[in-house]
């Protein structure tokens, strides 16, 4: 497990455990999230991600262990924790019979924006940002799934919380809406320096957005680290992709003759070689030289990194 010392912790969990009868949904999770960091919580369905978020948001109490959010103890200062946290729940949790504006207005006031003018201006600003201003007087029931998700995120940040818990923010969205949400999360982190706990099973989201991530499986922490560190856990020989203008048997044999090369495969496109090597730094120049000497024309040479997906599947399977 990769461990780093944090400068300032926005969220800290120590031995966090939740049992439902005989089922242990979360099993002694310990981690910390630094201020301004986007921290991913990855894992298969039923891994305990949502339960962890619920404990941190003071929606349910842990069976064992403790947590602090923004410096407040979740078991002693639950109201304070709720005030400084914005949460996007697993489903949008919106009142379908109320309008877009009424939903925002209720939650804004519930989160402490008691001044009507301040509330109205904040809501207007958010609806503008999420391109929902034209729909503000429509009942939520009439909105598309993507719009509901945007509204739910707008609701989560209506009180300008420094800490955000986002549970599966892009699930069920079309690619364009999902990208919109990802851009938004990126903006909230980069420009507004909010601390974000992103709970997802979409590795694409995690890789693009998270500074660090933790893989959980069956309630237990499998690993914590950056995407790079997670990939490095895959213990396999380095690969090299060589893209050529043309391909012939002579070139393949020439590459096979290189000292550090273990195996050579031709990719489907027929002009790409996938070369398994012992040592990338030592093998790459020799491979290029041999290809050229065999009459080949090299268009590009790139090391192939194991994907986060491979690392994830390997780590989850190993548990």
């Amino acid at each position: 497990m990769v461990r780093k010392v944090s400068i300032v912790s926005a969220v800290q969990a120590a031995g966090l455990t939740k049992r439902f009868g005989s089922l242990t949904a979360v099993d002694h999770l310990s981690f910390e999230i630094r201020e301004g960091e986007v921290f991913g919580l990855l894992g298969p369905n039923g891994a305990g991600k949502t339960t962890t978020i619920r404990m941190l948001a003071c929606l349910i109490s842990p069976s064992e262990g403790s947590a602090s959010v923004g410096g407040y103890d979740t078991s002693k200062d639950s109201l304070k924790v709720r005030e400084i946290v914005g949460i996007l729940t697993e489903n949008p949790s919106l009142y379908e019979k109320l309008t877009v504006y009424e939903n925002m207005d209720f939650f804004a006031e519930a989160y402490g924006l008691s001044d009507a003018q301040e509330r109205s201006s904040r809501i207007r600003e958010l609806l503008e940002f999420f391109r929902l201003r034209d729909r503000k007087n429509e009942k939520v029931a009439k909105l598309s799934k993507g719009m509901k998700q945007k509204l739910a995120i707008a609701r989560a940040i209506v009180h300008n919380p420094p800490i955000l818990f986002l549970d599966e923010p892009t699930t069920g969205l079309d690619p364009e809406s999902a990208k919109g949400i990802r851009d938004l999360i990126e903006g909230l982190s980069a420009q507004e320096k909010r601390t974000i706990l992103l709970c997802t099973h979409r590795l694409e989201d995690a890789e693009k957005l998270c500074n660090r991530m933790m893989i959980v499986n069956k309630g237990k922490s499998v690993i914590v680290g950056t995407a790079e560190q997670l990939r490095s856990t895959i213990d396999s020989a380095p690969l090299l992709r060589v893209v050529l203008k043309g391909m012939n048997q002579r070139i393949i044999e020439a590459v096979r003759g290189v000292r550090h090369v273990r195996d050579v495969n031709v990719e489907n496109s027929a002009s790409n070689l996938i070369v398994t090597v012992d040592d990338l730094a030592a093998a790459t120049p020799e491979v290029v030289r041999n290809v050229v000497q065999a009459g080949g024309e090299v268009l590009s040479v790139n090391p192939i990194q194991p994907s986060l997906e491979e690392a994830y599947l390997k780590l989850v399977k190993a548990e």
Binding site: A57, C58, L59, L79, K80, R82, E83, V85, I87, T89, E90, N91, S93, L94, Y95, F107, A110, Y111, G112, A152, R155
Partner: peptide, 9 residues
């Protein structure tokens, strides 16, 4: 809708 309501302060 209960989860968002319970998450409020």
């Amino acid at each position: 809708t209960i989860e968002a309501l319970l998450a409020t302060p």
